[in-house]
């Protein structure tokens, strides 16, 4: 495992703005999800809603290491990935509310966020189905001869499906510029990884396909940034894929409809994991390195609070799709 080697003293003072950007991003994800959870409880968000709380360092660190024209594919726990890519909180929240102003016009919902102009290509809700799709984007990049990278985020439960193995084989065989980021939050719904997988170290699975792999501390945003940056270099410069296992933890239930703890994990385990909170971790480093004042932290939180409150209000006040939208977008012209 790539150790979280950062200490406050090792931070580079000239990169203060970058660190603050990462911190603000993670706080934005946290507050977005908390407000989404409230709205779900109030019945303003329907269907299944899978929150990302606890995992913020993974999407924030990884996507920060990418270029805007790199392609992103994510699972159904993907509010964060769209937000980090730059989809406005308004458009994401409005999609959760099913409104016409949502990033998928209200027809996708929480599990199907899309922002094609920003190269955010879903929002896929069949576990692991987007793993080959992301490789397809990698195939197209290679075919066109451009230097983009295709990045796929999926949970650890997806590594047991056939498509994961089929795709890693082809990505390695054809040397596709793809990065597969497994967000190992330790539970596929209520099934612990060790109850579902014969091999505990997910990164080891890359050995079967002679693919580069790394394990990263998914609670450390700087570690996620660095491990992803190395994979990007491998993909962009050498057209080689990488499997990254990000060890993280989800604080909430599988979805808003599921218990936070109970038969499958204990409250004690949850509290123990929260002691490694990614936002607190980065905050601690910055304080230790004297790179974050109380005033800066309060201003950051305040600006996030206003942004998310505005997003909720925007979603609330936005119109539903027109009735005619039912029959549009079934076929393209």
């Amino acid at each position: 495992m790539t150790a979280a080697t950062h200490s406050g003293a090792s931070l580079d003072p000239t990169r203060k703005a970058f660190y603050h950007g990462l911190l603000r991003q993670m706080v934005q994800l946290r507050r977005f999800e908390e407000r989404a959870g409230e709205a779900y409880a109030q019945g303003r968000i329907g269907g299944f809603c899978h929150l990302y709380i606890g995992q913020e360092a993974v999407a924030t660190g990884a996507i920060s290491a990418l270029r805007d024209d790199d392609y992103l594919f994510a699972s159904y726990r993907e509010h964060a990935h769209a937000l980090v890519r730059g989809t406005p909180a308004r458009a994401v929240m409005a999609e959760l509310f099913g409104k016409a102003t949502g990033c998928s016009g209200g027809k996708g919902g929480s599990m199907h966020l899309f922002d094609a102009p920003r190269h955010f290509l879903g929002g896929h809700a069949i576990v692991g189905s987007h793993i080959p799709i992301a490789a397809g984007a990698g195939f197209a990049i290679k075919s066109r001869g451009t230097d983009q990278v295709a990045v796929c985020f999926f949970g650890e439960a997806a590594v047991n499906i056939g498509a994961f193995h089929e795709t890693l084989n082809m990505a390695a065989l054809w040397e596709l510029p793809a990065i597969f980021i497994c967000e190992n939050n330790r539970y596929g719904m209520g099934t612990a990884l060790e109850r579902a997988a014969a091999v505990y170290d997910i990164a080891h699975r890359a050995c079967s396909y002679d693919m580069a792999s790394e394990t990263a501390d998914g609670m450390d945003v700087l570690a996620m940034y660095e491990v992803t940056a190395r994979a990007v270099e491998r993909a962009r410069e050498r057209k080689l894929p990488t499997l990254i296992e990000a060890r993280t933890y989800r604080y909430m239930g599988h979805s808003m409809a599921d218990p936070i703890h109970g038969h499958y994990r204990t409250k004690e385990e949850l509290e123990e994991q929260k002691a490694r909170d990614p936002i607190e971790h980065l905050t601690g480093l910055l304080r230790e390195g004297e790179l974050l004042t109380d005033a800066e932290r309060d201003a950051l939180r305040q600006s996030v609070e206003e942004e998310i409150a505005d997003a909720v209000q925007f979603a609330d006040e936005s119109p539903d799709p027109e009735p005619g939208a039912l029959y549009t977008d079934v076929y393209a012209d």
Binding site: I131, P132, I133, G136, S143, E166
Partner: peptide, 28 residues
């Protein structure tokens, strides 16, 4: 070979690769 591509026996995933390639501008 970049436009006539032999695959392993992996129908699910080469179909998915087609889907992904189509999403970013190719015609598989």
């Amino acid at each position: 070979p970049s436009r006539v591509v032999d695959t392993p026996i992996a129908e699910l995933s080469f179909a998915g690769i087609g889907v992904g390639a189509a999403m970013v501008g190719l015609r598989p």
